[in-house]
Design a binder for these strands. Structure first.
Lengths: 203, 203
DNA sequence: ACCTGAACACCGTTCAAGT
DNA sequence: ACCTGAACACCGTTCAAGT
């Protein structure tokens, strides 16, 4: 129907989408502006209108990544029902799933965050952090048992989640072990006991 | 005394040292073979004798990084005395310190490990992993209280350490909070209780 | 407002040749 | 055994010019 217009029409979006795919499939070393332009069917200088330089593209990728990850974490919490621990595990699993499927992107996200301080990026990261923090504060407000300073428990759980993601993407741990790690971390931070091994529960 | 020889003499070592410094000071984007050659005072093609391509240099950096980090962790344990928890905290602190001082290198190390499988690299990583694992197994053998499956506790502690490092390098947590995070994680994994806040202990 | 084409400096990689 | 110098393909970036 729509013969695609001479002016690409949505070059910025197309470049970002293609960049995310390249990042996932080939790694950041194969991410070149000229190549993206080629695949979008425009001249090598066209991206300049939308991204001042290569770094600007990476910044935009990082920002979009934090926003999407935040959304996925929130969605996981929303569909986890009312049980607090179950919600925590769902949130953590969503984070680890993202880390597994988009390892290179997640890495880029934190590299950019370390190097750059733009309001847009800080906001996107803040939304992700808040997805976890809101849940944890909510839990402590609803009278969940606390083992100590709530702020410290919160930080510890965040560390465990991010650490689990790191262990998975580095290949030191598989998906099943990651799920158990998450369950253990959540249980230890909420009631101070690790769950029994799967086969040993009794009626 | 020694006029430096025409043949550089130790080009490989010089390149690696300079690369590590550039990585620390300028980031991986500014790491170029030609630039390293320039700073070593050799032609741009000279590094080829020692590193087949840029990736080979990165691989060597990663391997050396894992070895050094393993050594630093072991050294920290050795100088921590006989108390098990103190040893654990010292090991974790050494890891986090490395992550703080050589964030770009640590990142590169895990990127390389994910992409490449050479015996040398696997061995270097194995030596780091073993530094922690030996300590943890030693602790459980010496009759330290266990809260559950020792393998799971071990993994959880590794996740907490790596997660703490991630929080520090991403700027979400400062050095003091990192120390407390480590102390909390170690305490929770060994006796299931978080240590009291600093000012509130009673005689 | 958005894109093209030529140009420049830089890089990784290769290879014949030098010592 | 180790290094040089020229060469090639590629990239990021810039800018005058086109629609």
């Amino acid at each position: 129907m729509t013969g695609r217009p001479y002016h690409h029409g949505n070059l910025r979006t197309a470049l970002l989408a293609e960049a995310e795919r390249t990042l996932r499939d080939q790694g950041i070393d194969h991410l070149s502006l000229r190549d993206l332009a080629r695949q979008a069917g425009v001249s090598h200088a066209a991206p300049r209108r939308h991204f001042a330089d290569r770094q600007a593209l990476l910044d935009a990728l990082a920002e979009a990544g934090f926003l999407r990850l935040g959304d996925e974490v929130r969605a996981a919490i929303d569909t986890a029902g009312d049980d607090y621990e179950r919600q925590l595990r769902a949130a953590a699993s969503a984070y680890v799933r993202f880390a597994t499927q988009d390892a290179a992107l997640l890495e880029l996200m934190y590299v950019v965050k370390r190097g750059k301080h733009s309001p847009a990026l800080d906001d996107a990261f803040g939304r992700l952090f808040a997805a976890f923090d809101d849940l944890l504060r909510q839990g402590q407000h609803a009278g969940e048992r606390q083992l100590g300073d709530p702020g410290r428990v919160r930080l510890l759980l965040l560390a465990a989640i991010q650490g689990t993601a790191a262990l998975v993407t580095s290949g030191s741990v598989d998906a099943a072990q990651a799920d158990q790690l998450i369950a253990d971390a959540v249980a230890l931070c909420t009631h101070g006991l690790m769950p029994r091994a799967a086969g040993r529960s009794r009626p």
